[in-house]
Amino acid sequence: MPRPDVELLAATTSKLIKPFEAVVLLLQATNLVMSAVNDRYRDGALPVVFALGGLHLLLALLVVYRRGPLTRGHAWTSVWIAMIFVVQLLLAHLLAPGDFAAYGNGVPMGNYALIPLTVFAFYPWDGFRNPLRRWAIECGLVVAIVLHPLLILGLMHRWDLTGAHVRSVAQYAVWAVVWFLTGKGIAWLCRIAVRVETEALTRSYEVALGDFHSHVEGAARRIDSGHDARQVSRELREITYARRRQLLLQEHNVGAVDIVKNAVRLHGDRLVLLSPPRLGALTIPRDRAIVLEQGLADLLKNVVDHGGGAVALDFALDGDRMVFDVRDEGPGLAPEAFAEPTSTMQRLRRKLLELGGDLLLLDPGPGGGTAIRLALPLRSAR
């Protein structure tokens, strides 16, 4: 079983693969187009070269908006590697007689095959679980790309190679090593990113959960000694809520779904959610998430204590303004109690007003109960 840091490294690297795939395909498309200008091809070959350039540009765009061959799995990766060799071999046969292309060895656009080495050098082969296998794959790719010009020259010149051909292939090999080492540099940066992320996660754990185990053990001992299990579980739930809140609010942008879930979990089986809000993938800046999370916790506590424990929680996005409607089926909240300056509702309202939001007591309708609207802009007004 792979170590957690290996799994984190593979996950982090996989996230970086996609933009690099797109850049590589874009550079390959550029090489193809420039080859049509710099190299001399047979009659009728230029449309093929331009078509290949357009195809690579289209693939780069698809990678940006979808997924590339490396992120789709080893089968697609093999197809892409095969395409690199096939395209370069095809272009070499399309060259006009006597044209030796940029490297002087009959291989046009030498960088076309070298650029992917940068990605191959930090691609998480086998999820970094088997270093020997990964090194074997990487070395095999470097050797294959370095020797590919020799295969092209052998096929085109019936293996009648000159000293100039050999020197050109040696130059090509040096550039292959340079591109490969560039990829290894990117791999080193990935490892730095993983180390920083691991340290951040460790700090978050220590801040939020460092003493949580002792609370769990203390709760078990209290239950064993005869304390009310429901009371103990309620206290433990409040501690859990506080720890989750600490973890949530360390992010610069907090998921609205996570905020609502944590506020609901605080009350356990004392709260029945009649209609959950549809929040999608909405994220909220941390300064607003702190106020929203505390506000929802207070409103739901009011439902549990005075509103019968059943609540309908609705959400709407009015432009850049979040609107939460909290409706319960209790005896109702008197307007004068809501407007009391020292009440929880008014303390929450003052915080919301500072951020451009508001807290309003709504008409509950013929069914009675209490209806409160919490409104908060996603961003500060400029």
Rank of each mutant, 00 (worst) to 15 (best):
V48F: 12
P4E: 07
D228P: 10
L282A: 05
V24K: 03
L55P: 06
I239P: 01
S343V: 14
E197L: 13
I115K: 02
V177E: 06
L16P: 00
R288P: 00
H267C: 02
A193N: 04
V33M: 14
R379N: 05
G163C: 00
V87A: 08
L153Q: 07
A144L: 13
A281W: 00
L61C: 08
P335S: 10
L161G: 06
I239K: 14
R129N: 05
L266M: 09
A22Q: 04
G295S: 12
A281G: 03
A10L: 03
T13Q: 11
P366K: 13
V119T: 10
L61T: 02
Y41K: 04
D126N: 08
K15H: 13
G98W: 00
V254Y: 06
D363K: 13
D160T: 13
R288V: 00
G73E: 01
A11I: 01
W188C: 09
I81N: 05
A136W: 01
E340G: 12
V207G: 03
Y241M: 03
A51I: 10
E251A: 11
G140P: 09
D325C: 12
R321G: 09
V142C: 11
L26F: 05
G308K: 08
L317V: 07
A310R: 15
G73Y: 00
L348C: 15
F122E: 01
V143D: 10
L155I: 09
A229S: 11
L271Y: 00
A144M: 10
D160N: 14
T162M: 04
S168C: 08
A371Y: 07
R286K: 11
V178F: 15
W125S: 04
S204Y: 01
V304P: 00
M109Y: 06
P97G: 09
L359P: 06
S380P: 05
K351V: 03
G68T: 06
W188G: 11
G98Q: 01
L249R: 08
P124I: 12
G330A: 12
G332M: 14
M1K: 07
A375V: 10
E197V: 06
V260Q: 03
V174Y: 10
D160R: 15
N111V: 05
H252G: 15
L61Q: 03
D211Q: 11
V194Q: 08
I186D: 05
P131C: 12
E293V: 12
C190R: 06
R3G: 14
T370G: 15
L353V: 15
H93A: 05
P47Y: 02
D5K: 01
R134A: 09
G369R: 13
H215K: 12
D298P: 06
H157K: 14
R67H: 07
A144H: 04
L95V: 04
V174N: 08
K301R: 15
D99G: 03
P331D: 15
T77R: 13
L32Q: 11
I152R: 04
P19N: 12
I239H: 07
E340C: 14
L161Q: 08
L313V: 13
A173V: 02
L27M: 05
K184Y: 12
H93M: 06
I186L: 14
W80K: 05
V257M: 06
Y172K: 09
A200G: 10
N253C: 10
N262H: 00
H215T: 02
T162P: 01
H215S: 09
E21D: 04
G68P: 04
T30P: 00
